[in-house]
Every structure is written in C-alpha cells, then in structure tokens.
C-alpha cells in the first residue's frame, strides 16, 4: 500500500501553484476581452501597459472606447471577483481549520446574515447619506456587530470551543434571517433590491472595491500563512497544541477575528456568494493535503480563478446575467458532491 508522502505533497503543491498562477493571469486577460465589445488578449495587454507606463503610443489605432471599457468597466469587476474569490477561500481554510468541522465556511459564524441584515436595513430605510457606499458600509457594520455578539456569546473563561462558536453562529444567524424576512415583508419596491443584493453581484464594481478586496485578501492570507503551522497543530486538539508551545486561545482568537473581517469585507463588496469558501479548501486539501500554509496560498489562487470564471460566465457567456451566488451554488454544489463521493469511495478502497 503506497501512500503519497510529504515530499510528494509539497511537490504537488508547487506544481499546482505553477499551474494556477499563470492560469489566473491568463483568465484575467482573456475575460477582460470578453463581453459585448470583443477585445483580443493582445489589445487588453496593450491597454493595460499603456495605462501603467503612460506610453500612449501603445494604444494608437485602437477604438477610443476600448481603454475606457477595459480600465473603468471590466477590469475593476474582474479583479474584484478574483480577489473576493481568493478572500473567501482563504477564510474557508481558516474556519475549517479552527472549527475542525468540514462544513465550516466563512459564513458559519453568521457574518453573511449580519451583512445581509445591515444591507437590507440600509435598503429598506433608504439610507442614502453616503450614496453608493451606504449599503456596503451598513453590510460591513452588520457583519461586525454579528461577529461581536457571536464571539461574546461563545467565550467563557477566555476559552472558546468550536461547538459553542458554531452553535452561537447558527442561533444569531437564524434570528437575523427572521429579521431579514420581516424586512422583505415590510418593504415595497425595495424587495427586488434586497433579493438582488442577497444573491451577490460584481456588476458596476469600481477601483475602490478592488482596493478593499485586495486589502482584505492580503491581510487574511498573511495572517493565515503566518499562523499556518500553529493551525496545523491546533487541529490535534487544544490540550496537545498547548503542550507543543502554541498559544492556542490567542491564536484561535486572532485567526477567527481576521478571517471574519476578511469575509465581512468580501460580503460587503459583493453580496453573499456561497460555496467558494466551502468547496475550494476541500478541493485543495484533497489535492495537496492538510498543511494550512500550502492550503491558504493555493486556495487563494483557486478561489480567485473559480469566482472569476463563474463571474465571466454569467457576464459574458450566458445570454442573460444569472446572479453570481446562484451560479456558484449551481456549479459548486454538484462538483462538491462529486469530490465527496470520490473521496468516500477512495477511503473505503484505500
């Protein structure tokens, strides 16, 4: 019985990174060209290079509208989708690692319900103080408030157990879901907007969104990699990790809060997009093993690629735009079932 050993796992991780990174760059370039106005990849590269270098001769001979479409319409949307996908996947790695639960995802602690509640409230009350920023801001504040409540509900004596965290998240999430339903019931013409927001969308994203998502992903990924080895050891249980020199309680709190903030920013930017944070970590763990440092980096790449492809499908391939949250669940769900089945069979025969 020969099993893949550690060197093989890390070799496979390098190989996968070497495939995913160029694939992601290629996907960004190709998808930027796709849409109502078709642009070739070479032209995309020329436009971006011209903008970065300030050398206008690079775009000589191109339609005036093309640089505008690429730089102000498509790229912000495409990059936001990729960054949010990466962010959600990294959060999924952290949550599954801390909660020791294969069903955990970035929304397990109720972040999504909190954000949805905040966004719905902003839409129903028609808060327009900050213009376009009002809904994302309220979503973010809702997520933060929910996180605070869930963490305080589940801490006792400075300890937080995985089960109480999950339970608190479920309870708070259920209360908020009822609140959202009630708001939908009360709302008139805003109902459509609430539903639209809940299903997630990358339409009309700006460079501000790109910046926010980039910051969220960078912080989440850095912290996940920095504490990756601690997280590995923590998966052996708190008593073991304490005795191996890991400050379990502190590391758990830091990771939970960072991952939740990352998820909160992602949700505020894009609405609720499911499945990326659940399946990508599983899929990567299946390919490269459970080391969380490798897992975080590869999941970020794979999550970015997956959400970018899904968003491109709904934006430029399908005849009408399908909400991205629906699409990821429709593609991700069956795919997850497939992996799950294969793994079950593999375990029985292996």
């Amino acid at each position: 019985m020969s099993k893949p050993s550690t060197p093989l796992h890390s070799g496979r991780a390098l190989f996968l990174a070497a495939v995913l990174l160029p694939a992601l760059v290629a996907a960004v370039v190709v998808s930027t060209g796709m849409g109502f106005i078709h642009v070739t990849p070479a032209e995309v590269v020329r436009v971006v290079a011209a903008r970065l270098s300030g050398d206008r001769s690079l775009v000589a001979g191109l339609d005036q509208v093309i640089p505008y479409v690429i730089m102000d319409v498509r790229l912000p949307r495409i990059l936001t989708a990729a960054l949010v996908g990466g962010g959600l996947a990294v959060c999924g790695v952290v949550f599954q690692g801390i909660l020791l639960n294969p069903l955990a995802d970035p929304y397990t602690l109720g972040i999504s319900s909190g954000a949805a509640f905040g966004a719905s409230l902003a839409l129903v009350l028609n808060i327009t103080v900050l213009g376009h920023g009002a809904v994302p801001l309220c979503a973010f504040l809702g997520a933060l408030a929910t996180l605070a409540v869930v963490l305080s509900l589940s801490s006792f004596d400075g300890q937080m157990s995985a089960n109480t965290l999950i339970l608190s998240g479920v309870i708070v999430g259920a209360i908020l879901a009822a609140g959202i339903s009630f708001m939908k019931y009360l709302a008139d013409e805003q109902v459509a907007m609430i539903i639209y927001w809940l299903m997630g969308s990358f339409a009309s994203k700006s460079w501000t969104d790109v910046g926010l998502a980039l910051a969220a992903l960078a912080v989440g990924l850095l912290v996940a990699v920095y504490y990756g080895r601690d997280l590995n050891i923590m998966s052996l249980g708190g008593r073991s990790s304490d005795s191996l020199g890991v400050e379990t309680a502190r590391v758990r709190k830091i990771l939970l809060i960072t991952a939740s903030l990352t998820a909160a920013v992602c949700v505020s930017v894009s609405g609720i997009i499911g499945f990326i944070g659940l399946i990508v970590p599983h899929w990567m763990r299946f390919l490269v093993g459970p080391d969380n440092r490798r897992l975080a980096v590869l999941s970020a790449l794979a999550g970015a690629l997956l959400l970018l492809v899904a968003d491109t499908v709904t934006r430029a391939v399908l005849p009408a735009e399908v909400p991205i949250g629906v699409l990821t669940a429709l593609i991700g769900g069956p795919f997850f079932c497939y992996i799950f089945r294969r793994r079950q069979r593999g375990m029985i025969h292996g």
Binding site: L100, N232, S235, L236, G237, R239, S240, R285, P290
Partner: peptide, 10 residues
Amino acid sequence: PQDFTINFAF
C-alpha cells in the same frame, strides 16, 4: 494526552 483528535489527513 488521554484524548486526542486528529481530524485532518496528515
């Protein structure tokens, strides 16, 4: 320890 969990396939 007396009770130990190993949840992931290390």
